[in-house]
Design a protein around this nucleic acid. Sequence first.
DNA 1: CTGAAAGCGCTAACAA
DNA 2: TTGTTAGCGCTTTCAG
Lengths: 353, 353
Amino acid sequence: MMDKADTGSRKGADGKRPTINDVASLAGVSKKTVSRVINSVPKVSPATAEKVNEAIEQLGFVPNLQARGLAARYSYLLGFVYDNPNAYYVLEMLNSFLRQCRENGFELIVHPCDYRSPGFTTDIVRFARQSQVDGLVLLPPISEFDELLSALAAERLPFVRIGSRENAHHAPMIRCDDEDAAARMTTHLLDLGHEKIAFVAGHPDHASSHARLRGYKNVLQNEGIPLRPEYIRWSKYTFESGEEQGGALLDLADPPTAIFASNDAVACGVMHIAHERGIAVPAELSVAGYDDSPIALQIWPSLTTLRQPVGHIGKIAAKELIKSIRGEHEERFETIVLHPELKLRESTAPPPS
Amino acid sequence: MMDKADTGSRKGADGKRPTINDVASLAGVSKKTVSRVINSVPKVSPATAEKVNEAIEQLGFVPNLQARGLAARYSYLLGFVYDNPNAYYVLEMLNSFLRQCRENGFELIVHPCDYRSPGFTTDIVRFARQSQVDGLVLLPPISEFDELLSALAAERLPFVRIGSRENAHHAPMIRCDDEDAAARMTTHLLDLGHEKIAFVAGHPDHASSHARLRGYKNVLQNEGIPLRPEYIRWSKYTFESGEEQGGALLDLADPPTAIFASNDAVACGVMHIAHERGIAVPAELSVAGYDDSPIALQIWPSLTTLRQPVGHIGKIAAKELIKSIRGEHEERFETIVLHPELKLRESTAPPPS
DNA sequence: CTGAAAGCGCTAACAA
DNA sequence: TTGTTAGCGCTTTCAG
């Protein structure tokens, strides 16, 4: 390895990174004044501030977040907790969340986990304590476990939830109106003339699955169309489970003319199996999805779906979390509800006559 | 906000989290002994260790990483730096990398960035300094910019590179033999009987694009098949650019019978445009990709491609980085080369006769 | 508007 | 095998 003495770029005199002390002595002020400058505390005279900034510049000083955190009880670290099969969803959320974090000087530690494992709540609490994050963002379905929510509340740790199931926890929440959106899609299928509409629900552990199913059921019931239990199948929100459940639906003696899948991955699975069996989409079978993930446009034919504004959700979530860390929230935390947009594309059409 | 006094679960006497001092006094030993126990330093008698562990358990003590880091000069934090359009690739890498990190007690801070922005090197260095990460993993194409590599070396910051372009930097590197893999795919197409094989290269900023192109060219040249410049197109490693370049190839007066795309997204774009024009894959046109991302199996027909062992790469990268942080590396850092596996599926077949 | 002292929670170096 | 003494780099008192 290299010789410690032969130091490279800007470091302190002894080969280490410059500290607040180096800046202070170079600028001829006290530590505290430097501290005030780097934290933009108002009460510093412009002249002093100037001197300090020069010294900072000259030394290439960057404050040490650990030291700052230790002293101030603030880590400027946020935790991103997820257990989700959808790579696009997670990464898009991560990116938009992070963009907002950066603008506020926060960094992000990612913490994937397995909500089915027994120590899952403990693990997350432990993670939060150990890494000293100032707050957590919880993706679905992690955001929907009461045990975890209570544990975090007991820790007095600010967090924000992204999910579908509302419940009275003291944390802000961003949700999409899944029920209404699913209802709109069902109506669209109905409007096209379909009567035999099947529904492939998502993973039962996700609240969104149930909400979407409710939307579907409600519309049919309101329209006086009897629910056929064999037209309702549960999936795992994955492509493979879409193939499986789609296959089962197409195997029925009286198969549906339209299949509404709870997300795009499942819808793609359904379309794949249809292709395999030589069933033309949308001529013989309409397929609809949910999410508007990139695959919706990449698949052939392009998928009618509901657009979740993932980027927007991430941004709002970060804002809310930071607000809540800063204690800027009003009395009660609000739930922000967003409405997915219906994207009509090529995979849905009137039923064969 | 809530009353600080009305404290919830296990906290210190004054409503704060238990510290090493609390543990020490409860166990009736010194701070340092507790420290030894939590760091599993051998020289502690089993009896004392037992006592300490009991106290830890009882108080629900979790060491504060910031304090530890400040004192010990390491943070147990790693940085994950990327600028990559492929969500699957990034997230899969992240997950596998992280799994390995956890086993070694490291947490991960994610740092997406834009390699085209002017301050990009400075930004990453600043990030590293500020967040005190112990090391960085660089994904392609970030891993291929000499300026950044030099800057990190000057910082004495351990890092590991995942990429395609080898160069003598003092850091371990994991790479796939893109050139050889692309050659194997080209040979496969040749073996099927194709002579008019086009190549859609990736993004020119990625070294992998050039390596894959070399593999393609070499095979054709070795087989004495003249390179037709109109059969070589550059993309951006995205679906959309695949559509574009695929379209251009199919517009040729003498279009190819096979298109080898530099990644699966591009290949899907090519297939999409073929579908749109009513060109049957693989009957009239063979299409091959690279990566074996999930879409390769989800698309219809399923895509012949080269499997990059992304999960494996992430794991190795983490191991190497941690080794290098611990100074456990031999004299020189090694480059670990992996070989993608050829996955023959339905999108390639003999050319139409 | 500025500074001095004290200490955040932990580990390092030494000593015992 | 264990404890003591100093800090790590920063922010917080609270004085000036």
